[in-house]
Simulated assay, not measured.
Amino acid sequence: MPVKKKRKFPDADDNEPKCKITSFTRPQIRGARPIADKLFSGKKCLTWFHKYAGADKEVGPEAMEKFCEDIGVEPENIIMLVLAWHLEAASMGFFTKDEWLRGMTILQCDCTERLQSKLDYLRNELNDSVSFKNIYRYAFDFARDKDQRSLDMDTAKAMLALLLGRTWPLFPVFHQFLEQSKYKGMNKDQWYNVLEFSRTINTDLSNYDEDGAWPVLLDEFVEWQKAWPTS
């Protein structure tokens, strides 16, 4: 999960106002059995949080790196985005105490070992089309600067690479298009439609309807791609 420096007031697996994400349905947690069948402890979970946050009310970028090291996951790994989704984290690179306690309680994780036992579960959620769509949509608000309505293009390209880089055959070409385009950012409608485009449009673009309700950005991508020499 890419880390952003805090403002006042995220390669694939190996590749408005402050928004509380509450509209995305999270499935009931299934996974490894609790360590030694012990019950989840809220007190232990809070102590675990303060191991990284110290006296602060949140785990920040430096502490996040230590947290990732302890659970054995690179900060840029997509599994950190899935975890942030479960915690309903509002800002990239930060977990607040409320987010930590709420999310880890749902996951029934009160220590490093328990979270490690759930990593395969978190990774497998990416294979569920509904969960993936929710994670993808969540990523927009999670990654954007909270004083902006759109994702800046560098962040959008990085998040698209994380989410679609290994599964969408046209992603390398789409990335090239974004590199040379006039667009400096991506709004929510464009972001949502890129996923729909990647799921429904053939690699050769043969079923793309120019009169469909696609954003202009995708119309321009199709026009740009079709203008490429075929040999």
Rank of each mutant, 00 (worst) to 15 (best):
E88A: 13
E99M: 03
D110A: 02
W85K: 12
D98K: 14
F95D: 06
L83Q: 01
H86P: 07
H86G: 02
C111Q: 15
T112E: 13
K97P: 00
E76Q: 13
A89F: 04
G103L: 02
L107S: 09
D110S: 09
F94E: 05
G93R: 06
M92R: 12
W85Q: 09
E99Q: 14
A89D: 03
F94P: 01
L101S: 02
S91H: 10
E76C: 07
M92W: 06
C109H: 10
T105H: 12
L115N: 11
V82W: 02
C109P: 03
I78G: 08
F94M: 05
E113W: 10
T96Y: 05
Q116L: 04
W100I: 11
E99I: 08
F94H: 05
D110G: 10
S117M: 13
R102P: 03
E113G: 07
R102I: 07
R114H: 02
N77F: 10
H86D: 00
W85N: 04
E113P: 04
D110R: 07
R102A: 11
F94A: 06
T112R: 15
Q108M: 05
E88R: 15
E76L: 06
L81P: 04
F95R: 07
A84P: 02
Q108V: 03
M80S: 05
E76T: 10
C109S: 10
R114K: 12
L83D: 03
F94L: 09
T112C: 15
S91F: 10
H86K: 01
A84Y: 02
I79R: 08
V82G: 00
A90N: 04
H86R: 08
E99K: 08
A89Y: 01
L101D: 02
D98F: 05
T105Q: 15
D110N: 04
P75M: 10
I106G: 05
G103P: 08
I79K: 03
T105C: 09
C111G: 14
N77P: 03
L115S: 09
